[in-house]
Design a binder for these strands. Structure first.
Length: 777
DNA sequence: GCTTAGGATTGG
């Protein structure tokens, strides 16, 4: 049985295994480690059982954190739990609403309904043999789970003293007298992370207070950084054993003495009281718990924590000093006294952020997870902090204390925010790694989860059984400002551009990058003519060149007489010059051969007639005029032929078998290999790992969602391409301001003249944005 | 061997 009912009154019967550690629902994040963990909560909702087929059931329930603290919103305490298989049915039959349950062997997923139902951003999934449920019927008290053991952050299980007689006595801070060696408790009001002294040790400087409001300075000395108090923020509670009281500069302070020990606790009322230490052996009693509770409550009432020093990137202002809670994405050593940290907290700064560019090979880690460099803060860490910074691994969660936001303005670039952690320890300057499960990281985890939500992940969620479409996810995706998305269904992992560059072709990759530059800048030059037969590529002749060819042809015109066509003459705009119109069909004007007209005249006539073929006569026969000009005009459309692949025929006869003329039969009759319109652009892409020259060619039409042939005749579509490129690479913008593109890239080789070149092409990708054509610019 | 620091910014 995977479900066991625990009889709380009896000491026999099933028990929750002692090796399991409780994880509190408010602390759960997508990245929480669930092995050997349990969640305890009250069943507050049971949905109807979904019966898929034999022994295959799904049951959705909502569990509320057991004995939640006040003021914790349901978004933290109430979590969706989905049971699968037999367990679902068993749970339905065994567990009643209001029962308290302990769940183990679960996995965590992102709740697709979090925004809609306002519950926890994660959900728990219980499936398979690993999953177990312990039920405490009704809301009976459940001894054996909450008080007999507690665990610290290092996983050490600590026995709780049942003996009420206190082993240690703690001296109130007001009673400290120089010369005493005492144990003390206090609330931290100022702290510095451990720093190297001129002596042999590291020193932590703190100021603490207690109910007497006396403020006492503390100096903790130890050669080992890990033996120093782990203080994360003002308001944290500290317990010091064996400190020596001194008198200095008119006030009392304490210094650690031989055999000292230190514990710290989160100072927030209502959070679990978990002693924080690297020590494997320490004493911790119910009395300690009460002291921490008391000090927490007192500090809260004193409003000691009134002004939180941590500021999100979104609220950072130039020149500000602040504490930043963030995740390290990448780092690079700049020089001996400076290390660059690229960090993010998932929020977007209101000011443009400086991107300190470093060579990809010098960068450890990647900023590719961040959906836009405008989410990535570049932090320059100086002098004494370099030692700590160098030890950091990308992915680590950090708090940076007394970070300085500096507006960098040069004459050429607009101002950008850069962040400096200056040398020294003034104002508590420093860095500290935050444990992954730190309560201080809840907000950050949530923000990062929202920012990194991708379409594919959304599909992985068990949306079907939730009966709620993940609208919220779509909404989030809209906000991501991805200016191009892949349309392929390859499940390739996204890689840095440097990987693409270093691979052996042929390969296919998914990348996320920005457009550094593109060519041609004059977008009409992106429109090309391509021969599907010989693959030759031609520029589209401009009207001036075309006009000159027509002009030349007029000069040598000698109208012939054709037995197979009716020939008429029009007066041209010039005195005496005639234009010949040959109609192969008496009664149809769908196809006419035109001779002796200027380009302007051809265009004018083609406005009203469907198919115009410019020709020149050779006695009784007729040939297309010249392959450097269109062989066919259809209204605004111009059709060109390939100079190399066409074998132009002299028309000596013309029988009309076609009911309707269009370019294909006309080109066949004339012996012309028609050219196709195509779009060709070069885009230089860039990400943190470097840059890459790519072509937009085979799938260029897909990218812009146009056909090249339509672009050739539509000012509106030309504007659309212009608009798209302006969006990808706004004129005058810095790279940080440009949107990100999610691209599918093919790497291949092209053999030319005995040499092979590696090429990169963007495939299967569409630019995003309004699909209606924007107003003409 | 028994000190070190003893809060307090403008700077790459």
């Amino acid at each position: 049985m995977q479900i066991r009912v625990v009889d709380a009154a009896a000491n026999a019967g099933p028990q929750v295994p002692a090796h399991l550690q409780r994880i509190f629902i408010p602390q759960l994040t997508l990245s929480s480690i669930c092995t050997h963990k349990f969640v305890k909560g009250k069943v507050i909702q049971k949905c109807p059982l979904v019966d898929l087929d034999k022994d295959n059931y799904i049951l959705k329930t909502v569990i509320q954190e057991h004995k939640p603290q006040h003021d914790v919103p349901p978004g933290l305490t109430d979590i969706n739990v989905i049971f699968f298989g037999k367990l679902a049915k068993e749970f339905l039959e065994t567990v009643q609403q209001e029962d308290v349950v302990v769940l183990t062997g679960f996995t965590i997923g992102r709740s697709p309904t979090a925004i809609k139902d306002g519950l926890h951003s994660c959900y728990l999934q219980l499936a398979g043999g690993e999953a177990h449920v312990y039920v405490f019927p009704g809301s009976t008290p459940t001894p054996g789970l909450t008080t007999s053991t507690s665990t610290n952050s290092t996983g050490t299980t600590v026995s709780t003293s049942e003996n009420p007689k206190p082993k240690y006595t703690y001296t109130p801070l007001k009673d400290l007298k120089p010369g005493m060696i005492v144990n003390i408790y206090g609330v931290v009001t100022f702290f510095k992370q451990p720093f190297r002294t001129k002596g042999t040790d590291y020193c932590s400087t703190l100021k603490i207070t207690d109910e007497s409001s006396v403020k006492i300075g503390c100096s903790v000395f130890s050669e080992k950084v890990e033996e120093h108090p782990k203080v994360f923020k003002n308001g944290d509670i500290i317990r010091l054993h064996r400190v020596k009281v001194q008198f200095f500069n008119g006030s009392v302070n304490v210094v650690t003495s031989l055999g000292f020990s230190v514990l710290t606790f989160d100072g927030s009322v209502g959070t679990p009281i978990v002693p924080c230490t690297s020590s494997r052996n320490f004493h911790f009693s119910e009395q300690d718990k009460q002291t921490v509770e008391r000090l927490r409550q007192w500090a809260t009432n004193q409003a000691l924590l009134a002004a939180p020093s941590t500021v999100q990137l979104a609220h950072v202002q130039p020149s500000m000093y602040f504490d930043l809670t963030c995740q390290l994405l990448a780092k690079a050593k700049m020089d001996g006294s400076c290390t660059l940290l690229k960090v993010w907290d998932g929020t977007r700064c209101a000011h443009p952020l400086l991107n300190v560019f470093v060579k990809p090979e010098a960068l450890e880690g990647s900023v590719n997870v961040a959906s836009g460099t405008d989410l990535v803060a570049n932090v320059l860490v100086y002098d004494n902090h370099v030692e700590v910074a160098q030890e950091l691994k990308p992915g680590t969660f950090l708090r940076i204390y007394n970070l300085h936001a500096i507006l960098q303005t040069t004459s050429t670039t607009p101002s950008h925010l850069c962040f400096h952690l200056h040398g020294g320890t003034s104002y508590g300057r420093g860095l500290r790694v935050l444990p992954k499960d730190s309560l201080d990281l809840q907000q950050l985890h949530r923000t990062l989860e929202l920012v990194t939500t991708s379409c594919e992940e959304a599909l992985d969620d068990p949306v079907d059984i939730w009966s709620t479409p993940p609208e919220s996810l779509n909404a989030l995706l809209d906000e991501k400002e991805t200016a191009a998305v892949r349309t392929c269904d390859h499940t390739l992992e996204q890689v840095p551009l440097s990987n693409v560059k270093s691979c052996t072709p042929p390969r296919l990759f998914h990348v996320r990058a920005q457009v550094r530059s593109f060519q041609p800048r004059r977008l009409y030059q992106a429109l090309k003519l391509r021969c599907p037969h010989c693959r030759a590529l031609f520029d589209i002749p401009d009207d001036e060149a075309l006009a000159s060819v027509f002009q030349k042809a007029i000069r040598g015109v000698r109208f012939g007489s054709l037995s197979w066509a009716a020939t008429g003459f029009l007066d041209s705009s010039e005195t005496g010059r005639k234009i010949a119109i040959h109609l192969p069909n008496w009664d149809k004007e769908e196809l006419i051969f035109l001779e002796g007209a200027t380009l302007e005249e051809v265009c004018c006539i083609s406005k009203n007639l469907s198919n115009i073929v410019p020709v020149r006569s050779c006695g009784e026969s007729m040939v297309p005029m010249d392959l450097s000009v269109p062989f066919l005009f259809q209204g605004k459309k111009r059709h060109y032929g390939c100079r190399d692949c066409s074998s132009v025929r002299h028309l000596e006869d013309f029988t009309c078998e076609e009911d309707e003329w269009n370019a294909k039969p006309i080109s066949e009759v004339l012996g012309i290999q028609p050219l196709q319109y195509a779009l060709l652009m070069k885009m230089e892409l860039e990400d943190e790992s470097g840059s890459l020259e790519t072509l937009l060619w085979d799938d260029a039409e897909k990218f812009f969602q146009v056909t090249a042939a339509d672009v050739a005749v539509s000012q509106e579509l030309q504007n659309k391409i212009q608009w798209t490129m302006n969006r990808l690479c706004p004129p005058g913008s810095t790279i940080a301001e440009r949107p990100w593109l999610e691209l599918c890239i093919a790497v291949y080789t092209v053999e030319e003249g005995g040499r092979s070149t590696v090429c990169y092409q963007v495939l299967n990708t569409e630019s995003t944005g309004p699909h209606v054509t924007p107003a003409q610019e």
